[in-house]
Simulated assay, not measured.
Amino acid sequence: MTFGVVRPDETDADLTALDRHGDVDATAGMVDFAVNVRGETPAWLRDELRHRVDDVARYPSRADELAATTAVAEAHGRPASEILLLAGAAEGFALLPNLRPRRVALVQPSFTEPERVLRSAGIDIDQVVVSEPWGLDTAEIDDAVDMVVLGNPTNPTSVLHPRSAVEALRRPGRIIVVDEAFADVTVGEPESLASSRFDDVIVIRSITKTFALAGLRAGYLLAAAPVVARLAATRPHWALGTLQLAALEMCLGERGHAHAYREAQTVTADRDAMVAALTEAGIEVCGTPAASFVVVRVADGTSVKEHLAQRGVAVRSCANFVGMTPDHLRLAVRDPATVRRLLDAWKDVI
């Protein structure tokens, strides 16, 4: 086994930075529980992308953009005017200041990128921290808030909120932004709002996790046509490259849907087995996980994380998530054999 090395800059302060993500922890050769990307890019998708490599000598075509948009439209039953193709879901958050919200409620704990970009734009933020097990029933949002941002299922808690609970947050003059980057790892996507054509709901989706395309950066946004137009107003021409457009077309097509459904089934089975194994080993699993990751709580979590890294196992600290502590660690769902490697290293650490 190749063991990872704890970098000298891996301090508590670094762990709390908003722009720190799990990829920083998972260096080559480590057993990766830090990054929520699912395995390897499907062979059929790699082959299709290879066929398009020669096309990168030309600018992305209108035909490729139309094909990708059509695939998204057919997948969610929405017109092209309600779709904005993105260079990764994170770009969708970066565009939110274009809507000029006055006061934004961030339902926490949640993905850190919305806070980072909204603060950079000088927008007032309410941190709405929901208590464990992190249901929306404890979310107290002021009526003056004109934008609410939340994840479903939520990163890092893996909680899947009922769509009715998300819809209940709607108010006149308010926009609801739902991060559905992990919705496609829930079998049948029962709580997704992607196909609901509300004028005041924005849904942001990603294809990089389930299809293992993190290095390609591709996703999309769904909203009412006037909202899409405002969000896109400042974007450059050729916002996505040819391979990104091709990937969106393929992942939202029939073959992509079949792959995502199989992955969702695998995630469900592996997560159930992983939770059982962690619990049997005396490790506290927090909440009721529904996505491709789980949160555990352990005393002196930062030290445990560093010692696991020395044994070649990467896990994600939750120190930079509002409402969580360094004693919370996020673990990507992996197959039973890989989980055994985690538990063997964990026993050595404890």
Rank of each mutant, 00 (worst) to 15 (best):
E191L: 09
E191G: 02
E191A: 14
S192P: 00
S192C: 02
S192D: 00
S192A: 11
L193V: 11
L193S: 01
A194F: 10
A194P: 00
A194N: 04
S195T: 14
S195V: 05
S196N: 10
S196Y: 12
S196G: 11
S196A: 14
S196L: 12
R197G: 03
R197F: 05
F198Y: 14
F198M: 06
F198L: 11
D199M: 05
D199E: 12
D199S: 10
D199C: 05
V201M: 06
V201S: 00
V201L: 04
V203C: 15
V203Q: 05
V203L: 04
V203A: 14
V203R: 12
V203M: 13
V203S: 14
I204H: 00
I204A: 02
I204Y: 02
R205I: 05
R205W: 11
S206W: 11
S206E: 08
S206P: 00
S206Y: 13
S206D: 01
I207L: 08
T208W: 04
T208I: 11
K209S: 10
K209A: 05
K209P: 00
K209H: 11
T210V: 15
T210Q: 13
T210K: 09
F211L: 09
F211T: 06
F211E: 06
F211Q: 07
F211C: 04
A212F: 06
A212D: 06
A212R: 09
A212L: 06
L213G: 02
L213F: 10
L213S: 03
L213E: 02
L213V: 07
A214E: 12
A214M: 13
A214Q: 12
A214K: 13
G215M: 07
G215A: 10
L216C: 10
L216Q: 07
L216S: 04
R217K: 15
R217C: 13
R217M: 12
R217A: 14
R217V: 05
R217W: 13
A218V: 08
A218P: 01
A218R: 07
A218M: 09
G219K: 09
G219T: 05
G219S: 02
G219Q: 04
G219M: 12
G219R: 08
G219N: 03
G219A: 03
Y220Q: 13
Y220C: 14
Y220G: 03
Y220V: 09
Y220L: 13
Y220K: 07
Y220D: 09
L221F: 07
L221Y: 05
L221Q: 03
L221K: 06
L222E: 00
L222I: 12
L222R: 02
A223C: 00
A223V: 03
A223I: 10
A224R: 04
A224Y: 03
A225Q: 05
A225N: 04
A225M: 06
P226M: 09
P226Y: 07
V227S: 04
V227K: 07
V227A: 07
V227Q: 04
V228W: 04
V228E: 01
V228A: 03
A229R: 15
A229T: 12
A229M: 08
A229G: 03
R230E: 15
R230G: 08
L231E: 02
L231N: 01
L231G: 00
A232Y: 13
A232C: 14
A232Q: 12
A233E: 14
T234R: 08
T234C: 03
R235D: 02
R235I: 08
R235Q: 15
R235H: 08
P236D: 10
P236G: 13
H237M: 09
H237F: 07
W238K: 12
W238C: 12
W238D: 15
W238Y: 15
W238H: 15
